[in-house]
């Protein structure tokens, strides 16, 4: 059962890093506007020319 000596701390560290990530994202204001966040993914303004990328495979 020596493997538990590694596995349990590993599980705790992984879970703990998730917890820390959550705390950070909360402090960072990631959950302040859930309504707006779902619309912001549709914004193409961050693309270089402001246009939507071509959908599908590249026409040759």
């Amino acid at each position: 059962m020596e493997v538990l000596l590694y596995l349990i701390p590993a599980a705790l560290v992984l879970g703990g890093s998730g917890l820390i990530a959550f705390m950070w994202s909360m402090k960072n204001g990631q959950y302040d506007d859930l309504e707006g966040a779902k619309w912001r993914i549709l914004d193409d303004g961050d693309l270089p020319d402001g246009h939507a990328p071509t959908v599908g495979s590249d026409p040759k």
């Binding site: 302040d32 506007d33 859930l34 309504e35 707006g36 619309w39």
Partner: peptide, 11 residues
């Protein structure tokens, strides 16, 4: 001169 503008849609 505007440094930051953010709309909060929920509120």
């Amino acid at each position: 001169g505007v440094k930051h503008a953010r709309v909060n849609m929920s509120s």
